[in-house]
């Protein structure tokens, strides 16, 4: 088995009496989409924050590219190549689409403290940004303000920004959230393409998307991973059906 790109080992996090992460262990292997599903309040957001570096676990270890990153912050993990997209679009809404993507290119190059040249006219930044827009199909909208985009386009822009980082792993927090059927389908196609560039840890509610995309699925319930397996195994697993799919087994 190939060395996992990202590994979460025995991570615990409590808020007062609530155990948001209860001894969570999961990993992301090269070339896969690993979906993380679970009902609302299962602790998905807390887990993501710990993986990104926004929250420090009470116990356990997170390794990325073979390095222990448990003590590193968000900025450092991003610089190592961990690219996340947000559940609620976090974009500079007043800025144009191209400026939003350029931000990623600037971050990836460590170029935020350059003062003399225009960011828009920098060939290297621009080429990287345009390539990302092309890939998600937003090239035509480059001069639109992010705030004027449709919801679906914003979701795609989120992905484009992540792409500019040339990431070693994607962490996607409900990229399908709020998308209609056709939007979901487009996003599904896009994620399938992206998987060739870097593995994806996918947090998603849209079961059709999960079942068509995921190589493996983990189910999180009340802070614990109750099961990890293939899509077929998940569909068949009685405890999962009861806990998550809301069926009587």
């Amino acid at each position: 088995m190939a060395e996992p790109v990202l590994a979460v080992e025995g991570v615990c996090k409590s808020f007062g009496m609530v155990r948001a992460s209860d001894n969570v262990t999961l990993d992301l292997r090269p070339g896969e989409i690993h979906a993380l599903i679970g009902p609302n309040g299962a602790g998905k957001s807390t887990l993501i924050e710990q993986i990104c570096g926004g929250l420090e676990p009470d116990a356990g270890r997170i390794t990325f590219l073979g390095r222990d990153v448990t003590g590193l912050g968000t900025v450092q993990r991003a610089r190592m190549g961990l690219a996340r997209t947000f559940q609620i679009s976090a974009l500079a809404m007043e800025d144009t689409v191209i400026e939003n993507v350029l931000l990623g290119a600037v971050g990836a190059a460590g170029g935020a403290f350059r003062f003399l040249r225009s960011a828009l006219r920098d060939r290297a930044f621009r080429a990287r940004a345009e390539a990302a827009l092309e890939q998600v199909g937003l090239a035509e909208e480059r001069w639109m303000r992010a705030g004027d985009l449709s919801h679906g386009q914003r979701r795609a822009l989120e992905v484009a920004v992540a792409l500019t980082l040339s990431p070693r792993a994607f962490l996607m927090d409900e990229p399908m959230a709020g998308l209609g059927a056709s939007g979901s389908q487009r996003m599904t196609g896009l994620l399938r393409e992206l998987k060739a560039q870097a593995p994806i840890l996918l947090i998603e509610h849209d079961m059709d998307a999960v079942f068509s995309l995921a190589d493996r699925v983990s189910v999180l319930v009340q802070g614990r991973v109750i099961f990890t397996g293939s899509v077929a195994e998940i569909r068949a697993h009685p405890e999962v059906r009861r806990a998550y799919l809301g069926e009587d087994a």
């Binding site: 926004g54 900025v75 996340r84 974009l91 500079a92 931000l103 971050g107 500019t164």
Partner: peptide
């Protein structure tokens, strides 16, 4: 406008 986004690109 979006500090969490800036952090997420490593700045």
């Amino acid at each position: 406008q979006a500090p969490e986004r800036v952090r997420a690109v490593g700045i």
